[in-house]
Design a protein around this nucleic acid. Structure first.
Lengths: 118, 118
DNA sequence: ACGCTATATGTCGGTTGCTGATATATATAG
DNA sequence: CTATATATATCAGCAACCGACATATAGCGT
């Protein structure tokens, strides 16, 4: 089992699956929405990651269907994936809070860029 | 310029430098503290990342000193690094909030593992 | 009929960042 | 004189991501 922290594309994938099952292409659009257009999931990342996550038991193939003549694979978050996502978000939340605290509480060490005025 | 999202070791490095300058080995201990012992930064990751971040202009070598006969390099967060860290934390905070919202608002689609009883 | 865009899945080479191991050196404690 | 803590550094290997390409159907405009 891989205990390494999730990279962002993977984190977003699990997040996009957290409320309901979706198919690959739908995930691209969903992630685009979640990130307010800042992250465009590439298909190379997507389908590789989906296979990997199924392999790891974090998600599973819910069903395969054909809609408007186009084949779809619908993925759902598995229990293990839900646990991992919950743990990961909690950890990240702590890191984010710490970073913001430090950014606010920075010292006089603070960098003064050459061109900056008082 | 690399616009890819930061991985966690890098995020923690910038966070650890956000309040005041520190030297390499001090960063290992600081990150250990920040993450409540959950992340042990390896030297292989550390010194590689420090070089890379200097190269990218996110941090800089503040000074070199000798304390108790041991040489140190003290790194400080640069303006660019501060900006990146601020942007990154803000983005992560949104993702974390979204993930938690979805985890809470999950549907009846919820996974029922094979062995589970009612 | 033809081309373009959106939908939909997939492969593959290359790059990047992290891991784990190894190396080097000084100071302190036992 | 050995072990541990402090301190920096390199390198092979690996896993995940990126970008480009491939394939196919549906629908819309011209």
């Amino acid at each position: 089992m891989n205990e390494r922290p999730l990279q962002e594309p993977t984190l977003l994938l699990l997040t996009a699956l957290a409320d309901e099952p979706r198919h690959g292409y739908g995930l691209i659009q969903e992630i685009d929405a979640i990130s307010q257009g800042r992250v465009r999931m590439r298909t190379g990342t997507l389908y590789g990651a989906l296979d990997r996550l199924v392999q790891q038991g974090l998600i599973r193939v819910e069903r395969e269907e054909v809609v408007d003549g186009r084949a779809r694979k619908v993925y759902a978050l598995a229990e293990a994936g839900r646990d991992v996502l919950a743990a990961e978000t909690e950890r990240l939340r702590a890191v984010v809070a710490e970073a913001e605290r430090r950014l606010a509480a920075r010292r006089a060490h603070a960098v003064r860029p050459k061109g900056a005025l008082a």
